[in-house]
Each structure stands twice: as C-alpha cells, then as structure tokens.
C-alpha cells in the first residue's frame, strides 16, 4: 500500500499543550538497509524536533530506550525494524502502565521504588576480610542469568499484575534482583529478605503470565527467579537453592 514508504505511528503527548495523548502518523522513505527502531526515531526527530524519548548508549546496555514497539516491549536501540515491521507500519508507544511525562518518556518512580524495596545490595554483617569476600565458582554460577538485568523496565511494564498493583507487587525486574541477592552466597540476610517478600502481594501477585520472559531484551527469565523465591518462601531456608540456578 505504501510501497517504499514506511508509516510510523507515534504516541504523542505534551501535558503543557495536549489535553489528551494521540497517535501521530509520520511517513518516511523506507531506509535502504535494516536500521534499529532508535535510528528510525532519530530520522523522525530530524524533521520534528519536538519528539521526546530517552536514549543513551544505543547498544542495549543502559536500558534507557525501553518502549512498546508494535505492541511488544523492547529496547529501541537493539530492535531492527525488519523484525517488527508489519505491512510497512510501525507503532511506537511508551512503556505501558507507567505515567507518561512526554511522548515516549515515562515516569519510572514506581518502578525504582520497588527496586529500592528489595534492598539491591549485599548485606553481610560479619567482619569483612582484608581483601574481598570470596565465592566458589559454583556459588558464582548461581548468579548467571540474574546479574545481567539492566533495569530497562520492559518486563515489569509488560506484566498485568504490575499494571494493576505497582505499589504492592514488586514486579519481575525487582524480583529477579531480589533473587540475585538471595542466591548470593556472600549475602547473609536471607531470612530478612524473605520476610519482606512474604505478604500476599510482593511475590504472590505473579500469576506466571510470562510476559516478562517473552519481552526481556537480555533473554533473562524473571519467572524462573520468582519460582525460586516462592520455593524459598515455602521453606524459608537458603539451602534449597539449586546449583544450576536460573
């Protein structure tokens, strides 16, 4: 229908000017080579300087440019347009469930508040050794698939349980990090961490919908980590962590 043209439908909202958000359509020449969605946004911004979005490293490390691309959350900088384009159309929206500040920029306060809640740092009150707290290679292996999270919020904002209760349900990203510290042999606050997660909302609002696994741009599995936390909560013992981990 559009031949060599690419139609981009972009979520626009400037609270200072617009009463309601709206979708604005842009038609551009289809790039000759496959480019990333972030590059596409740069092309649009050349013509319309008012378009707002976050970006930083542009290589899938900083997690700034998480957005909803044709209905699925992902990082714009590592998503080629060829993988998302449908009938020469691309629809870009902000991450769902979070308040929109402007265009594709969302307010991530609720997301970070949940991250803060799980105390994402090592807690060990024993006397620190002279150099560093050592770990066996097996114990270190347990952290693979956990520490790689870049906090882009793609998973949490694709989770309906997080949409409905972002103040109570910790969300997949923060729960993955919660398990990262529960699984760490150098952390000895396991019981306190588990007690903080034992209410009916923090962990148990996860119904295994698996959107988090489907959208994670780093290929991580928050759902499996949540399952491990649930197992630990049932037994409330640290020794049930299996060595092959997450």
């Amino acid at each position: 229908m559009f031949g060599n043209k690419l139609q981009v439908s972009l979520y626009r909202y400037n609270p200072e000017e617009d009463k309601f958000p709206y979708m604005k359509k842009y038609t551009i020449e289809k790039p000759e080579r496959d480019i990333m969605v972030l590059d596409l946004l740069h092309l649009l911004k050349e013509d319309d300087q008012s378009i707002s979005y976050r970006r930083s490293c542009r290589e899938g490390v900083c997690g700034s440019d998480g957005m909803n691309i044709n209905g699925k959350n992902g990082l714009a900088c590592i998503t080629p347009i060829s993988s998302v384009i449908k009938r020469n159309k691309i629809e870009l929206r902000p991450l769902p469930g979070l308040p929109v500040i402007r265009d594709l920029v969302v307010d991530m306060t609720e997301f970070y508040a949940q991250y803060e809640k799980i105390k994402p740092f090592l807690q060990n009150e024993t006397t620190a050794p002279e150099q560093e707290r050592l770990q066996s290679p097996e114990d270190r292996d347990k952290l693979d698939g956990l520490y790689e999270c870049i906090l882009c919020a793609c998973c949490s904002t694709s989770c309906p349980s997080f949409w409905w209760n972002p103040d109570k349900f910790v969300g997949p990203a923060a729960l993955l990090q919660a398990y990262r510290f529960l699984a760490d042999s150098r952390d000895n606050k396991t019981e306190e961490r588990l007690n903080a997660l034992s209410d009916p909302f923090s962990v148990y609002r996860c119904h295994g919908i698996m959107n988090c696994v489907s959208v994670c741009p780093k290929g991580l599995n928050p759902n499996k980590a949540i399952g491990e936390i649930k197992s630990m909560l049932h037994k409330n013992k640290k020794d049930i962590i299996v060595s092959d981990g997450v």
């Binding site: 034992s198 209410d199 009916p200 148990y204 049932h234």
Partner: peptide, 9 residues
C-alpha cells in the same frame, strides 16, 4: 496473612 499460606491453600 502470609502469601504462601494463601498460595498453598
């Protein structure tokens, strides 16, 4: 109430 109790029930 503990979440695990509700979940187990």
């Amino acid at each position: 109430m503990k979440g695990s109790l509700i979940w187990n029930t």
